[in-house]
Write a protein that binds this DNA or RNA. Sequence first.
DNA 1: CCACTACTGCGTATGAGATACGCGAATTAG
DNA 2: CTAATTCGCGTATCTCATACGCAGTAGTGG
Lengths: 246, 246
Amino acid sequence: MTEELSPDLVLLWRLRETPKRGPKPGLMVDDIVTAAVEVADAEGLDAVSMARVAAHLGNSTMALYRHIKSKRELLMLMADAALEEPPEFPADADWRAGMTLWARGVFAAVSRHRWFVHIPISAPPFGPRNLMWFDRALGTLRGLDLPHEIKYSLVMGLVTYVQGGYRLALDLAAGYAENPAPFSGSYAAGLRKVVDPHQLPALAEMVADGFFEGAEDFEPSDTGDFDFGLSVYLDGVAAQIERFTR
Amino acid sequence: MTEELSPDLVLLWRLRETPKRGPKPGLMVDDIVTAAVEVADAEGLDAVSMARVAAHLGNSTMALYRHIKSKRELLMLMADAALEEPPEFPADADWRAGMTLWARGVFAAVSRHRWFVHIPISAPPFGPRNLMWFDRALGTLRGLDLPHEIKYSLVMGLVTYVQGGYRLALDLAAGYAENPAPFSGSYAAGLRKVVDPHQLPALAEMVADGFFEGAEDFEPSDTGDFDFGLSVYLDGVAAQIERFTR
DNA sequence: CCACTACTGCGTATGAGATACGCGAATTAG
DNA sequence: CTAATTCGCGTATCTCATACGCAGTAGTGG
């Protein structure tokens, strides 16, 4: 019954037993991942090439392939490493406080590793850190008498919303930092030029009222907008909980 | 006062006037974008290289650069092209029906162009189609006496949630199609091997109850999960509307 | 202590991809 | 006609991921 474990799983959970024969490895998977994370933190995900990571380690490019099958695998490992350990959640917090803390925790981790949101996802969460965060999110609903399926869906929604929101915020911030005025001076000025009140009535109304005027600054530290969005989702969660527990 | 328009804007809105001198162009921006979209539809976003798109058009690679400054620009144009025209929304629908229709419309468009969710966003929405969809979303809140800022935030939340949800769903489906059993047989089997009840109590509980057992199939046609998430968010919107209008 | 075996690091080579640069041909304004 | 443009595209450079295989190393069984 000791079924074969998949290579991805072995890698993510560092389950490979150290070989008896052969030379001592001068390099470990963790070293590679750490180096890749450092490169990404400093210069962004695009700067993470096998050559770049190897140089950061003082090794040659091809040495990495002894420990990692492909760059895809490296990215998968980075995605787990970026999430760090989730913080301790107070046991007495209700679900809403818990989810808010959870979102802030994700924000803290992602802020330190902004490239996280760009790693392509191709499989359900499976790394140790990913599962830890998933567990903590589920944990906020502990004690509530909800079907597993509802809990799961509510948490998946939370994950989706939080990651989507951070991705949008960070992308805009990065785009803005790189090119502060993509559309002739300002977003508002650009909109005024192309928005036709007949074609886009609702938008035109906001433009006319000057709503976009001050909004040049897309700093993600400006979490006000994001927090509001989160509270909207949490209001929805509250409604569902009420519906199911009454 | 005729301020200079930015190149991106000119390109997105096709505002460049046709030059008087020189040979007739045998190629237009729209041809290139259409070809790129066809390639992406058929073989995915990774297959979209300048060479591939040019070959699809029967032109040489470098010919494209006469019309497009960089691949980034091409992707930007593709992102707008993928969104097609939004459908007509019934005028008598309330905001909730409107947002639901909106989400379904996005789903329909994205389903035809699954690569859409992978195009990196680096600036606020500005293409004609993007603004059209944005306007329609704002339009669902017409007639409600809400501050612009609240409407804007509610719509941004909707966009975030819907795109995030589709991205997740499509990525998992793609990953599953490519590698149906990434973790020794099944997700459930893999989880059973690595989830420690002391480390991950909430998750372990679900695993023990067999919750993940049947969930091998990550088909995005399975919109039930997504619809539920959307309804959660819309419940939140309802709560906000109630708070602000009464 | 020796041969064997399972490993290690890494050099070389291949093939794709983006894109700078600039040439020569086409087209029209004056 | 001549000069001003603008077009298509060939050539070349640089960056990457990665297949392949060699040579050296450390336990192991004789």
